[in-house]
């Protein structure tokens, strides 16, 4: 592995990129992270590590990214602004770069009320767009917020998230434009089940020329059961799962539901591949890393490109 972002290389070369997600353990065992690395190596270009997702305390994203790096993967460091102020965020950006991490995904983060520390103070000193802008200035101008110069700038491919399914729809594209203007070189979207709504959003982005200014990776999550689909639809904010998807999951016997979930996921990826403006896919197989290899293979995305 060279010293550049594998993800960036793949996208710039024009290949359809594949990223997946690795949730760190609720514990200190590095073996859990390394096992996920082993499962996913060669199947994806880069691997996102979530940052205390749903506000539940887990191994730090930075540490888990470092473990993935040593295992030969290209980690995407997810960082939320919920838990750290601008001093800590900028400091961790420098640390991440020093550890050889080459991708960062700047996020707001799930509100602390949803997790296992609801009494925590939500920091939100910066918002995700301001964070993107700060990292870009660190990288491109070598300055931190306030204008002081760094002795050496971080080397990071900067990403942000977009949720085409949240409201108001028209403003979703304005916000995408702001993220790109702030410096987001790639965008990973919320899980796509409602392809019509996604296309509406995407076409608005295409019309504004935004898909020429950043790389958009469509998010997908394979469903394990109709119960999971209903839970996500009703309980996970900003998630849009059409009823026909739920009916499809309900229409197969229990022992075939996971297969059906993978089939839906592969179909979605094949549709995304045809959409101008979509440059890759981000597979969030929640605690189901084994599914990723099968999905990638069935979607005709193997082998992944290798750079010398």
């Amino acid at each position: 592995m060279n010293d550049n972002s594998q993800l960036k290389s793949v996208l710039e070369k024009g290949d359809f990129a594949v990223t997946a997600e690795c949730g760190p353990p609720k514990g200190a065992d590095p073996g859990v992270v390394l096992k996920k690395a082993e499962i996913l190596k060669g199947k994806v270009d880069a691997l996102n590590v979530t940052d205390n997702q749903t506000a539940i305390v887990r191994m730090s994203s930075l540490a888990a990214c470092s473990l993935l790096k040593t295992a030969g993967l290209d980690p995407v460091l997810q960082m939320v602004v919920r838990d750290r102020n601008r001093i800590a965020l900028q400091s961790d950006i420098l640390g991440a770069s020093a550890l050889g991490i080459r991708n960062v995904l700047c996020l707001s983060g799930d509100h602390q009320i949803f997790g296992n520390q609801p009494q925590a103070l939500g920091v939100f000193d910066l918002d995700s767009i301001q964070f993107v802008q700060a990292v870009k200035a660190m990288r491109d101008e070598g300055v931190i917020l306030g204008g002081e110069t760094l002795t050496s700038p971080p080397n990071l491919f900067i990403g942000a998230a977009a949720n085409p399914f949240a409201d108001p729809l028209e403003f979703r594209v304005v916000r995408l434009a702001k993220k790109i203007e702030a410096g987001a070189g790639f965008i990973q979207t919320q899980c796509i089940y409602n392809l019509d709504r996604f296309e509406t959003w995407l076409n608005m982005a295409v019309d504004k020329g935004l898909t020429e200014k950043t790389f958009i990776l469509g998010g997908v999550t394979p469903l394990k059961s109709p119960g999971m689909a209903k839970y996500m639809k009703n309980r996970v904010s900003g998630m849009d799962i059409p009823d026909d998807i739920i009916k499809r999951m309900e229409g197969v016997p229990k022992d075939k539901q996971r297969e059906e979930g993978i089939r839906i996921c592969v179909e979605t990826i094949l549709r995304l591949k045809e959409m101008p403006g979509v440059k890759g896919v981000h597979i969030m197989a929640i605690e189901w890393e084994d599914a990723v290899g099968e999905i990638v293979e069935k979607a005709g995305l193997l082998p992944r490109p290798v750079f010398s």
Binding site: R82, F124, D127, I129, Q130, A166, R175, S237
Partner: peptide
Amino acid sequence: KHLLNGPCGGS
């Protein structure tokens, strides 16, 4: 979330 560049994806 005290966002100055909202709304977030949860709206």
